[in-house]
Design a protein around this nucleic acid. Sequence first.
DNA 1: CGTTGAGTTTCATACGTATGCACAGCAGGC
DNA 2: GCCTGCTGTGCATACGTATGAAACTCAACG
Lengths: 337, 337
Amino acid sequence: MTRRVTSFDVARLAGVSQSTVSRALRNLPNITPATRAKVARAATELRYVPLQSGRSLSTRITGRIAVVSEALTNPFYPQLLEPLRQRLADQGYQTVLIGDHEDDALTVAALSDGSYDGVIDTTASRTSRLPRAMAEAGLPCVLVNRMTDDPDELSCTFDDEAGAARLAGLLIELGHTDFALIAGPEQYSTSARRERGLRTALDEAGLWIPDRRTKHVEFGADSGHRAALELLAQPQRASVLFCLNDVLALGALNAATSLELDVPGDVSVVGFDDIAIAGWDRFALTTVRCDLEALAAEAVDMLTRLVRGLTVDGSRTIEVEVVARQTHAAAKAAVVR
Amino acid sequence: MTRRVTSFDVARLAGVSQSTVSRALRNLPNITPATRAKVARAATELRYVPLQSGRSLSTRITGRIAVVSEALTNPFYPQLLEPLRQRLADQGYQTVLIGDHEDDALTVAALSDGSYDGVIDTTASRTSRLPRAMAEAGLPCVLVNRMTDDPDELSCTFDDEAGAARLAGLLIELGHTDFALIAGPEQYSTSARRERGLRTALDEAGLWIPDRRTKHVEFGADSGHRAALELLAQPQRASVLFCLNDVLALGALNAATSLELDVPGDVSVVGFDDIAIAGWDRFALTTVRCDLEALAAEAVDMLTRLVRGLTVDGSRTIEVEVVARQTHAAAKAAVVR
DNA sequence: CGTTGAGTTTCATACGTATGCACAGCAGGC
DNA sequence: GCCTGCTGTGCATACGTATGAAACTCAACG
């Protein structure tokens, strides 16, 4: 059990004061090149690494960002987290993974102990109080992918409504009239906004989705699987399963396989997000591409600006585009009957 | 810009000293119930949250564990990370995600600044120097899933060799003689040990895999895809693609689909790990089940014991079992020709 | 030769919490 | 009523770094 090497040890070996060590190693100005070299040599020799807690006690800077995320077993989140982590690392920040407590208060307490310079929240529900609590605690916070109902809370999101509307438009043009919907929880903005985009587009075409063809479930492949089994078992099956994200859609495709239904021959299935698996040959899912790299870049840029005390324009929206793959087809000429 | 609430503020409001606040809030003994209540009330009123950096400067305890992981775009890692994060949270630790730098030295520097109570390394290569560096820095470290060539370095791994041997045995019994191998990098113990298990089993049956039917690639779905395309294009195609993990196998299945080959009719494909996607209807991959919950539980138990200064028995191995799904079949009676 | 001033280094202290030790209060024993 | 021992609280300091202000060095200038 040996004592840790401190800046005082380096100072003694280099023959200077502790404060000079501190300044020299951080390349502050007004240090003679000779002194700088002496200090650097001593630090290397002693394998000195500044203690982060001492540093942050003094500066109030931690170099850590808390990222609140859903369980990583939902394949969407790793795909979002990876570019976030990468971008944060590029900016010199460590990523601390915070699980989504049911209870906001627990999360708030965990985040307010001064361990973080900022917070990225990817789990906000429309009524989430986390952003406000963070503001009160003086901690910069950016919502990513989802947003709350308060438009003043800073967020980076995709254009969910437009994406859903465009994808719906594609299917309407192909003659589909019988839509079934597998949606996520209504308190998530992603689900709510995509649903609104879909319903608006249908409405403009004189179409609608009856309640019995609407399922609201948790976002998850198994939820999508179950919901699809029920919808596909209905008499006069819908011709489209419109899933509000890819994970639900992949579950639906698996359900179709287990029922030995052909996609898109028997039913079209579409998703939203374009996660990597959606592009695999075995799925070739028609979906809406969401550029998670771009989202992460914007979010990290916004957050780091806040952390540095710079101004931020306001929330940002990332455009999306339909990716037409092979899980959709033209409607059969049902009108003929 | 308002000053942070400190234990001194709480002390003043409660009419006691700072040290009493410190002791009362941590429920140390020798505090009168009345005093404890006063302090608790004051702390609540001021919304006091102890500053972590002050705490850890004094105690040298951070409550954080660094988890070194590959990119989360490889679906295996989220599945490993989630139970690790969960177990660590149960034990009161935050999880800090450390990306796998090419350069060990960078990682070592990042880990030695006193920000962590321990390290979980899921990216070790057989010659990785990280565990030794951590030992020198006095930081507890446990290798998870992979191990180095030094048997003294603490690890939690699966019984890779036995798993591969058993799976190979199943295929040999079904009459397969023409194996192709899609392996990972040889410097990863997972790949090396699974390959050894496979080759030993084949050898005992008088079989072997020619070099032209062996591909060593990065672990990744696209690598598996490319390798499978090459192997499946060979004249006198192998009857089995033996993939050393599921991610490779899923890539291979996608490749088979793109070539319009039937699995297992035209070729059997097997994997290793049993990640969630492998069980989806569209894949139904025959593979080796690795209980990641159990692995995470063992690893976290081992690491937290080290952190608390308790003794640890030594490395641990988790048993695995073959999961026979639908991507393998009996060999065609090729001997007849 | 004294003065100014720029450049370099040191001194002293702040950051917030935890904890060894001293001290005060109080009961019980003779 | 004095000593012993035990309990609850306060005092002082340690943890390691950063930084404003003071002090020192040295060259240039009048």
